[in-house]
Design a protein around this nucleic acid. Structure first.
Lengths: 218, 218
DNA sequence: GTAGTGTTTTGAACACGTTCAAAGCCCCGG
DNA sequence: CCGGGGCTTTGAACGTGTTCAAAACACTAC
């Protein structure tokens, strides 16, 4: 029965998330996950082909929480910098509970070939959803960048997001204060660059950036 | 005797490097490393407290090879873009033999708290050496950036280098062609930005960047 | 020489991620 | 009811990274 299948699966991923939060990724054993889910080790492997794959559950939850926090936070603002800042701070807030062990998670995802890697084909839909959020960040702001650049901007902003995440993962300061500082300082730079992109002196630069992004997309 | 100590250590790291090249990181077992080095497993752990730590050997070798390739490659050039491109292409060339499994290596290093991480305190000297190479890239070029920016530029170029490495790790194209494309497209952008940094419109932007870097250094 | 002390080396033992042959379960056609 | 074919589930077994108490060794002081 397919509903039995679902519930076993959910029990496993639920147990995994609980244990990850309690003891971190390395401190969680597959035996413990299986125990708490009330199944055998082998059964856990029937649904998830590796311990790494259990991380997908964490990932999905984080994306959903980020979106839920980001949209209301930027609503009402029309300044690109404000909207961008709200979105990035929302991410830091959403990720806060997982801070201690998220480093291991992202290290796993950073592994080339890993399906969780944001650059892997498997992560295509997840990536598209993330880029779309930045599309919305832009759409709600009264900003008028160079039109060619505008088309690539959502993806570029998502790249900025990845960079911030990378920093956050290594940030050991309380409440991720350094990452928040990085956001507060980076956002005006990006906003200014976008604003200046119409300037004649900067047009060739913008074109170079656009060409680069397109060339890499193949 | 300290020379015996050295030679055991070298035997282990040598065996590890051989095996890494033959079978990759995951395919290499500590038992195999110990065997080939002619010592016991326990002894390998006496010198290296984990399998990850053996990667340091690979890392050191790569840095040395990069420097050896980069210096002659940029000699004679005075254009910043040319020097930067030569340095980055030299890195890709030096890293080529390790391409298949370097992904695993950098994933290990990317783990927060790992002493191999470029941002860890343990890696301070290694980082300083890397930044210094970009100091040399700048020193040999006739370029005249905004003076405040100039002081932070070596570190910023090193950050660019890290970004390229990150891309390379995920690049599956033959001969890392896509990474080379990225270098060829990124370098002119960076060179142009540096050149434009003296422009009055861009001064505030440059200041923001400089402030950011300094704030994050604490 | 011998005893004492610190360093190096050993290999069995442990805990973990992962695999796999076998068993259990469910449902359908006869 | 029976038999068979696919899902699911099991837990013992394997190979791995890592630990540790004990042994071997090197040196010094007497």
């Amino acid at each position: 029965m397919t509903t039995a299948r679902r519930s076993t699966r959910d029990a496993i991923v639920g147990a995994a998330l609980e244990l990850f939060r309690e003891r971190g990724f390395d401190g969680t054993t597959m035996r413990a996950v299986a125990d708490r889910a009330g199944v055998s080790v082998g059964n856990a492997y029937y649904y998830f082909s590796s311990k790494d794959e259990l991380v997908q559950g964490f990932y999905d939850q984080l994306v959903a929480e980020h979106r839920a926090l980001a949209l209301p936070a930027m609503a009402g603002h029309t300044d690109l910098g404000e909207r961008l800042g709200a979105t990035l701070h929302a991410w830091i807030t959403a990720a806060e509970p997982y801070r201690e062990f998220a480093g291991r998670f992202f290290a796993v995802a950073a592994q080339p070939g890993n399906p969780l890697s944001p650059f892997s084909p498997d992560a295509g839909p997840a990536r598209a959803a993330a880029v779309e959020l930045y599309q919305e960040v832009l759409a709600g702001s009264r900003v008028d960048p160079d039109p060619e650049l505008a088309r690539e901007l959502p993806e570029l902003l998502w790249l900025q997001h990845l960079g911030i995440v990378l920093f956050w993962v290594h940030d050991r300061s309380p409440h991720a204060a350094r990452t928040r500082l990085l956001v507060d300082r980076t956002v005006p730079i990006v906003a200014r660059l976008v604003r200046l992109s119409r300037l004649p002196v900067l047009r060739p630069l913008g074109r170079q950036v656009v060409d680069l992004v397109r060339a890499l997309r193949e």
